[in-house]
Amino acid sequence: MTTYFTKDHEWIRIDGDVATVGITDYAQSQLGDVVYVELPEIGKALAKGDEAAVVESVKAASEVFAPVSGTVEAVNVALTDEPGKINESPEAEGWFVKLKLTASDELAELLDEEAYKAFVETL
């Protein structure tokens, strides 16, 4: 399994042709306590850059964009009752959606972990 990142602070873990997407530890630390998540419908086709989810803290609402194109195969329904998982475990239990990739060549445009870490250092 390979994990990629975006400059918009999403992570993408690839397992075969399925990509699991979430937000990074840096993103959750900036957002503060997450209180609500709006997840997409299963089966929805997302193009790269489309709004995939909305994540709300008390004072802020942010859109999570699809980092790659794909069809929504699963959503993390546990977040609905326990949005705090995004703060506690952003890069594992706090995942948002699983996408079935429709344009795997887009992966080449993403950052690897090292490049993302370097990017965060600059912020």
Binding site: E56, S57, V58, K59, A60, A61
Partner: peptide, 14 residues
């Protein structure tokens, strides 16, 4: 005051 992310000062055009 709660659930204020619905409101204009945070969501703006949304």
């Amino acid at each position: 005051l709660t659930l204020s992310t619905r409101e204009q000062h945070i969501r703006r055009d949304k």
